[in-house]
C-alpha cells in the first residue's frame, strides 16, 4: 500500500459519503443519475465476488463490503425512499449501450477465461464508463449543485490517484496490470472536462453551470 493508493481509496470513500449525506440531509436525490448508481452496483458486485474465494487483508475485505453495501443503500434511497425526488426525466441514458459492449469486451480481452476473471474484467471496463449517465444528466440540466460537483470531483480523483499508484508500483515493484491501467486512463479522461469546470468555477465559489 502506497500513499497514492491510500489517498485513492479514501477519495473513493469520501465520494460515497458525500453522496449519501447529500441525499439524506436534503431528503432529495435531484441531480443524481440513478443509472450511474445502478452501474456502480453492478461494478462492485461483479468485481468483489472474490470475497467468497480469496482473502487479501482485513482492510481489503472491509472496503469491498463497504463499497457493495453503500452502492445498494444509494439505490434504495433513490428508487424507494426518495423516489419522488428522482430526476428520471433527465436520467435517460441507455445503460445497455454500456453494459453490452463492456461485457463483450470482457469476454474477448481478459487474463483468463473463467467466470470470476471475466466478471472482474467486465467490472473494470464497466467502471471506466459508468459515470457517463451522470455526466449526461449534468449536460442535459446544464448545471450541478455544488455538493454534486464535490461528489464527482472526489469520485474522479479516486481513479486519477490510482494512476499515480500504478506508476509508483511499476517503478518500485515492477508490478503492472494492463487491463486496469488502460481502463483507469479512459475513466480519468472522461472526467477531464468536469475537472476543468470544477477547478475554474466551483472552487471559486461559483455554481457549476455549462455555457448555453
Amino acid at each position: 500500500m502506497n500513499i497514492f493508493r491510500l489517498l485513492g481509496d479514501l477519495s473513493h470513500l469520501l465520494a460515497i459519503i458525500i453522496l449519501l449525506l447529500k441525499i439524506w440531509k436534503s431528503r432529495s436525490c435531484a441531480g443524481i443519475s440513478g443509472k450511474s448508481q445502478i452501474l456502480f452496483s453492478v461494478v462492485y458486485t461483479t468485481r468483489y465476488l472474490d470475497l467468497l474465494t480469496t482473502h487479501v487483508s482485513p482492510y481489503n475485505t472491509v472496503m469491498k463490503l463497504v463499497f457493495i453495501f453503500t452502492s445498494y443503500a444509494t439505490i434504495y434511497l433513490m428508487y424507494v425512499k426518495f423516489k419522488a425526488t428522482y430526476d428520471h426525466n433527465h436520467d435517460t441514458f441507455r445503460i445497455e449501450f454500456l453494459l453490452i459492449p463492456t461485457f463483450i469486451l470482457a469476454l474477448l480481452i481478459n487474463h483468463e477465461f473463467t467466470v470470476l476473471e471475466v466478471l472482474w474484467t467486465f467490472s473494470i471496463y464497466l467502471e471506466s464508463v459508468a459515470i457517463l449517465p451522470q455526466l449526461f444528466l449534468v449536460s442535459k440540466t446544464r448545471e450541478a449543485e455544488s455538493i454534486t460537483s464535490h461528489y464527482l470531483f472526489a469520485l474522479g480523483s479516486y481513479r486519477a490517484l490510482y494512476l499515480l499508484n500504478w506508476v509508483y508500483r511499476y517503478v518500485v515493484e515492477s508490478h503492472y496490470e494492463l487491463i486496469a491501467i488502460i481502463s483507469g486512463v479512459v475513466q480519468t479522461i472522461l472526467y477531464c472536462d468536469f475537472f476543468y469546470l470544477y477547478i475554474t468555477k466551483v472552487l471559486k465559489g461559483k455554481k457549476l453551470q455549462l455555457p448555453a
Binding site: 473513493h12 481489503n60 487474463h111 472482474w120 499508484n165
Partner: peptide, 10 residues
C-alpha cells in the same frame, strides 16, 4: 499460459 495478476487493489 499467462499469469493472472494478484487482485490486491479495489
Amino acid at each position: 499460459e499467462e499469469d493472472v495478476p494478484a487482485k490486491d487493489e479495489l
